[in-house]
């Protein structure tokens, strides 16, 4: 079903009623699961993902690694002096409108796994944990666009919860442009945070930045777009990442405050010590 973009120029409102620079509602929780080292749940609009982090721990035996094979996906800096970051993504069959099953051998999934793994490996202080594995398992419960961005944000939160030292948050969001690639229309507005419908019809890209800086860890564009529009989209995307970072930071701080109030942890102890509970 083609997206009706004609109304945009009139009211400057998008299909779901947002303005060009508005994010969808982001709702996130950390420490959702008692057994895991780190866990998080993140909603960006109707895109819902869960993340569980195990480790840093001793790598699984060779038998395990062999069995998981390509499924466990990407490792970064596997052995040697740094911890390997292993990401596995499970896309639930019920996550999209029409049930469609993606095997774990799917190349798209493998690409996502490898992207998240190497994006986080650049922020995590993996050199502190030689010969160990940080295993990140992501579950996609519901998809409505900006999947990669949601996965990166959830993984970041879970790593924070797991108490793995990291440089800063890796925050991600998507940006797009209001008209299709065919039209070389200069007046096209950039858009922030695409939903599924917009992602299908409009050119867009996913950006992830490190912390508050303008430094881009991930930039993925999968649609045809005029090179002149890149700058606008990237600027909006980077700005969106800063907003997302602020939201993620608030989630972590709120949880921390709550844990202090409930007496789970004592005030003033470092993140490291929060793990001992």
């Amino acid at each position: 079903m083609p997206l009706d973009t004609s109304s945009y120029s009139l009211a400057l409102l998008r299909v779901d009623g947002r303005r060009w620079n508005e994010l969808r509602r982001i709702n996130a929780q950390i420490r959702t699961q008692a057994a895991a080292d780190g866990s998080s749940y993140l909603e960006m609009g109707h895109t819902k993902v869960m993340c569980v982090v195990t480790g840093p721990s001793e790598p699984f035996g060779p038998a395990r690694v062999g069995r998981t094979g390509a499924g466990a996906g990407a490792t970064a800096g596997a052995s040697g002096g740094e911890a390997g970051v292993v990401v596995s993504i499970v896309v639930a069959g019920f996550s999209s409108v029409d049930r469609k099953r993606r095997g774990r051998g799917d190349k798209r999934i493998q690409e996502l796994q490898s992207t998240i793994s190497s994006a986080l490996a650049a922020s995590l202080h993996t050199h502190l944990f030689p010969h160990s594995t940080i295993s990140i398992s992501l579950h996609v419960l519901s998809q409505d666009g900006s999947l990669l961005a949601a996965l990166i944000n959830a993984a970041t939160l879970a790593c924070v919860d797991a108490g793995i030292p990291m440089t800063d948050y890796v925050a991600a969001c998507t940006a797009g442009s209001t008209s299709t690639y065919a039209a070389n229309d200069e007046s096209a507005d950039p858009l922030l945070d695409l939903n599924h419908q917009e992602e299908q019809e409009l050119p867009g890209l996913t950006v992830a930045t490190l912390g508050d800086s303008d430094r881009v860890a991930v930039l993925v564009c999968e649609s045809r777009v005029q090179v002149s529009r890149l700058e606008g989209m990237l600027a909006v995307g980077v700005d969106g990442c800063k907003q997302v970072r602020a939201i993620l930071d608030r989630v972590v701080r709120d949880k921390g405050r709550k844990m202090v109030q409930e007496g789970t942890v004592q005030k003033g102890v470092g993140l490291e010590d929060m793990e001992v509970d």
Binding site: V52, R64, R67, T68, G69, G71, A72, S88, V90, A92, G93, R101, G103, R104, S135, S137, H139
Partner: peptide, 11 residues
């Protein structure tokens, strides 16, 4: 279908 993280679906 059953999905267990770290296990292949034909395990």
């Amino acid at each position: 279908t059953v999905e267990i993280p770290g296990y292949r679906d034909d395990d």
